[in-house]
Amino acid sequence: MPSKAKVDNTVRVLEEAGRGFRAPRRYETYCREATTAKDDSQAAPVVFTTLELLTERGADAAVWRRLGRAEEQTPTVALGNPDGDAL
């Protein structure tokens, strides 16, 4: 099993590399002082795990990490939208 330091380093690298894919984009506005909203519809969830965790606990267990979140989650929670929109 990989060391915690190696996993943490890999997570940091993935976080940085995936930031553009998971970050919502701002809506364009014609008024400089207008309030803008974030558009999550174009953000792609990126999830990952290790083979050791899959072997030990199974794919439906809380073994998945989603970029931008701190803890391991089940696949449904990891892929879910915190704003409540259905996938």
Rank of each mutant, 00 (worst) to 15 (best):
V13G: 01
V13A: 10
L14T: 05
L14C: 02
E16D: 11
A17G: 01
A17C: 00
F21N: 09
F21Y: 13
R22H: 11
A23Y: 07
P24L: 08
Y27V: 10
Y27A: 07
Y27H: 14
C31E: 10
R32S: 08
A34G: 06
A34T: 04
A34L: 02
A34K: 06
A34V: 00
T35I: 14
T35K: 13
T35Y: 05
T36V: 13
T36W: 07
K38D: 12
K38F: 13
D39P: 07
D39Y: 14
D40I: 08
D40A: 06
S41P: 01
S41N: 09
Q42C: 09
A43N: 00
A43R: 02
P45G: 03
V46T: 05
V46L: 15
V47S: 08
F48M: 10
F48T: 03
T50H: 01
L51E: 09
L51A: 13
E52M: 07
L54A: 12
L54G: 15
E56F: 06
R57C: 12
G58N: 00
A59E: 10
A61E: 14
V63N: 06
W64S: 03
W64R: 09
R66E: 05
R66L: 02
L67Q: 06
L67T: 06
R69D: 07
A70L: 09
E71S: 12
E71D: 14
Q73E: 15
Q73T: 07
Q73N: 08
T74M: 04
T74V: 09
P75E: 10
P75R: 06
T76E: 15
